[in-house]
């Protein structure tokens, strides 16, 4: 019982902290991207790419959380 609780906390932390990091990075990239976009609208594709890059972190967090729950 105790272990299940700890696992749940671990899984939560894995995805939560990863999401926090992604959010932090995306907020800065997003602000800068909006700025660049206002001046050069043709950069939209490139900016979507840049904003998308940190998302991998939260996906990895999700993978880790899933593994904790599935393999535990």
């Amino acid at each position: 019982m105790m272990e299940t609780g700890l696992m749940a906390i671990g899984a939560g932390l894995a995805i939560g902290l990863a999401a926090l990091g992604t959010g932090l990075a995306q907020s800065r990239i997003g602000a800068a991207g909006a700025g660049a976009l206002a001046e050069k609208p043709d950069l939209l594709g490139a900016i979507i790419l840049l904003i998308a890059i940190p998302e991998t972190v939260v996906i990895l967090g999700f993978a880790t959380a899933a593994m904790i729950l599935l393999l535990g």
Partner: peptide, 12 residues
């Protein structure tokens, strides 16, 4: 590996 795992977002 990251590229492959990236498709996990479909599940997520």
């Amino acid at each position: 590996v990251g590229n492959v795992l990236s498709y996990l977002r479909i599940a997520a």
